[in-house]
Computed example of a mutant assay.
Amino acid sequence: MRIFLTLFGILLLTCLSPLAQAERLRIVSDDWAPYIYQENGQPRGLHYEVANEVFKRLHIDVEWGFMPWKRCLAVVEQGQADGILGVFKLASREPFMLYPEEPLSQVEFVLFQALARPHSVTTLQDLSGLTVGTSSGYDYGTAFDTAANFRRESAPTHVANLGKLALGRVDLVVTDLHVGRYLLQRLGLEQQIEALPTVINDMPQYLGLARKPGRQDLVEAFSETLRAFKREPAYANIMSRYGEQNPSLATTVEQQGVSTH
């Protein structure tokens, strides 16, 4: 009888667990190829495939939404979305956002230049008098964001930024190394634009989930499942298909908004 009651208790707790219920989440992100983007109206990308697989293993359905980065942050903070894919851990977000311990990837912001108009840049001081193309709502690190010796000029999309660089309307563009290289290949600009070796900022980016009752359990489950998935051949295959030769890299640059962002 005691064994029966114990098993019944376990079963009851399982049925009441938020992770066991048919939960549906709304996760938003900016268009951030090759990490997450839309193709023929469907979500694609390295982060998308990895996160989608983790959610499947947790038996959680996800509705994916795309919008400008600053709006992504706003809808999560306002409770209109359940989470955001590819975000930094910032103290300003702690009141409304939870993060798994396991990151999706490691950010690596670098500068891109036109080969026809090269610049020698090893420190932020070398940017004096120049105009650097940025993306609206992104956080490139305190040192870059607060430097007063150069001008920052925002563009609505990463493609627009690289187009301005190719046309000489900005001197440099800052973006994630992998995002920049991916877009240059798609735009056919690989022979016109290159990445500089100086890293402006690097730090891990995560899935961020809105703070709600029971979400801490989901955060922990997502982290453990992601960590286990990274050890499987299927994960290495996803990384390879998106040009990542080192699967351990999963621990890239972020679409961080300045809200101050």
Rank of each mutant, 00 (worst) to 15 (best):
126 D>H: 06
20 A>G: 08
218 L>V: 10
198 T>F: 15
196 L>D: 14
257 G>N: 11
175 T>I: 12
17 S>Y: 02
169 R>W: 05
185 Q>A: 13
141 G>S: 05
178 H>Y: 14
209 L>K: 10
108 E>P: 07
149 N>Q: 05
199 V>K: 01
120 S>M: 11
242 Y>N: 04
32 W>G: 09
185 Q>C: 08
44 R>D: 05
16 L>D: 06
167 L>N: 09
240 S>C: 00
92 S>L: 02
191 Q>S: 05
69 W>D: 10
142 T>G: 02
207 L>P: 00
6 T>R: 13
1 M>Y: 12
44 R>N: 01
113 Q>S: 13
146 T>F: 00
38 Q>N: 11
197 P>C: 07
185 Q>F: 03
215 R>P: 04
134 T>N: 04
40 N>V: 08
41 G>R: 02
51 A>N: 03
2 R>K: 12
59 H>C: 10
150 F>A: 13
189 L>V: 13
174 V>N: 06
220 E>K: 14
119 H>G: 01
22 A>N: 12
231 R>Q: 13
40 N>T: 13
90 L>E: 09
208 G>N: 05
196 L>K: 07
26 R>V: 05
165 L>N: 13
161 N>P: 08
41 G>M: 02
164 K>Q: 10
207 L>D: 00
237 N>E: 15
118 P>R: 14
3 I>Q: 14
162 L>T: 00
81 A>H: 04
24 R>D: 09
146 T>R: 01
96 F>E: 07
219 V>S: 00
148 A>Q: 07
239 M>D: 04
185 Q>T: 11
35 Y>M: 11
82 D>Y: 06
156 P>I: 14
103 P>W: 03
237 N>M: 12
66 F>L: 02
93 R>E: 05
109 F>E: 01
14 T>W: 15
243 G>Q: 02
46 L>R: 10
66 F>E: 08
55 F>P: 08
202 D>H: 14
72 C>W: 05
38 Q>C: 04
100 P>R: 02
155 A>G: 13
258 V>C: 03
118 P>K: 11
121 V>Y: 01
143 A>P: 04
74 A>L: 11
179 V>S: 12
86 G>S: 06
153 E>Q: 03
104 L>Q: 07
198 T>K: 10
62 V>R: 07
117 R>Y: 09
120 S>V: 13
250 A>G: 15
257 G>D: 09
248 S>N: 13
157 T>M: 09
148 A>W: 00
106 Q>R: 07
179 V>A: 14
114 A>Q: 15
39 E>H: 08
196 L>W: 04
167 L>Y: 07
182 Y>W: 15
229 F>V: 03
